[in-house]
Simulated scan of single mutants.
Amino acid sequence: MIVQSYLMFNGRCEEAIEFYRKALGAQVTMMMRFKENPEPMADGCAGGPAPDPNSVMHASFKIGETELMASDGMGGGKPEFKGISLSLTAPSDAEAKRLFNALADGGKIEMPMDKTFFASSFGMVADRFGVSWMVINPLPMP
């Protein structure tokens, strides 16, 4: 079984993926726009308005070895990511700091990067799209 994150960016999907490409080295593995749908929708999903044909219907991208999926959804407004964080494990303190700072560009630091009892580096940041990230370089387990 595999559990994957599916992020709905409400009209900012392509912008978000480009940000993750630059900040985290994300690699796009697939992107389809609503206009490329082989079975075009007459109306929007769940009774909503028809989506912008140029918006992203579905995308897949990899950050490191992890595959994430994303969409513009119906593009109905500001995306909201509540009650969930993505955790990013870095191989060194320097890399943790670099990744944290890249995600913080235009975002909001929720917990500054610092040493903790469980990590030589740990911090929490909400990126410019509102996605919450925990960046960690964990201490070795005893």
Rank of each mutant, 00 (worst) to 15 (best):
I2A: 12
V3F: 14
Q4I: 05
F9K: 00
F9Y: 08
N10C: 12
N10T: 01
G11F: 06
R12Q: 15
E14Q: 11
Y20G: 03
Y20Q: 06
Y20V: 01
R21G: 13
K22P: 01
L24E: 02
A26H: 04
A26G: 06
A26T: 09
T29L: 05
M30P: 01
K35P: 06
K35F: 06
K35L: 10
K35N: 12
N37K: 07
N37Y: 08
P38E: 10
E39M: 15
P40D: 11
M41S: 14
M41F: 10
A42N: 13
D43R: 15
G44D: 07
C45Y: 14
A46N: 15
A46V: 14
A50R: 15
A50V: 13
P51G: 13
P51K: 08
D52G: 10
S55R: 11
A59R: 07
A59G: 10
S60M: 14
S60A: 13
I63M: 11
L68A: 08
L68Q: 02
M69R: 09
A70H: 06
D72C: 11
M74C: 07
G75H: 07
K78Y: 04
K82D: 00
S87P: 00
A90S: 07
A90R: 03
P91H: 12
D93I: 06
E95M: 08
A96R: 07
R98W: 03
L99G: 10
A104P: 07
A104F: 11
D105M: 03
G106H: 03
G107R: 05
K108E: 15
I109P: 08
I109W: 12
E110M: 11
M111A: 14
D114F: 03
K115H: 10
T116M: 13
F117N: 05
F117C: 02
F117M: 11
F118P: 05
A119N: 05
S121W: 02
F122I: 01
G123H: 00
M124W: 02
A126S: 12
S132G: 03
N137K: 01
P138M: 09
M141S: 08
